[in-house]
Design a protein around this nucleic acid. Structure first.
Length: 154
DNA sequence: GCCAACGTTGGC
DNA sequence: GCCAACGTTGGC
């Protein structure tokens, strides 16, 4: 089973939005980065777990856990000219952008802040993609060891 | 193929 | 709001 971290801006779509969503499930659409796309398309499997991370906000932090309930399939918003993530060059016959469906599992008792994670950047969390300088990936893998350690921080 | 310019991300 | 870092674009 794979482990991941998925970023979302709480002002746009936060953990509370997912918890309130129908069937507590959402399409993870709008990712327009090739590396993240490849993780969505080829890496994520049904049953994988992911940390839900709040980015670009007052307190960047891991706030919850979600489960992948549908593996990668074409992101239809790329074909919708009215969508903010429309990609005119994307061909429906050969989709460029993919998404998965994720379902709310639980919120953490308290958020694990980016600052807390950084405290371990040279130790137990060495190599965690989230802590790479200038990291802009919105979907990234988390090793089992890192996953367990982070859960222990909660 | 190089690389400068640009738009975006995201922490602070 | 600022700005560093990054990915993408497009001229050459």
């Amino acid at each position: 089973m794979g482990h991941w971290l998925m970023k979302s801006e709480p002002d746009v779509f936060g953990i509370e939005d997912l918890a309130k969503a129908r069937r507590k499930t959402t399409h993870w659409d709008g990712v327009r980065n090739y590396q993240a796309r490849t993780y969505l398309r080829d890496g994520m499997r049904v049953g994988d777990l992911a940390f839900f991370y709040h980015s670009n906000c007052d307190e960047p932090a891991i706030v919850g856990i979600v489960e992948v309930v549908r593996a990668g399939y074409p992101d239809h918003t790329a074909f919708d000219a009215n969508d903010a993530h429309f990609d005119a060059d994307s061909d429906p016959k050969q989709p460029r952008w993919f998404m998965v469906d994720v379902r709310f599992t639980r919120k953490l008792a308290r958020p694990i802040t980016l600052a807390t994670l950084r405290n371990h950047s040279a130790g137990a969390l060495k190599g965690l993609a989230l802590l790479r300088r200038g990291n802009r990936l919105s979907v990234m893998p988390v090793s089992v060891a890192h996953w367990k350690f982070i859960l222990g921080l909660a």
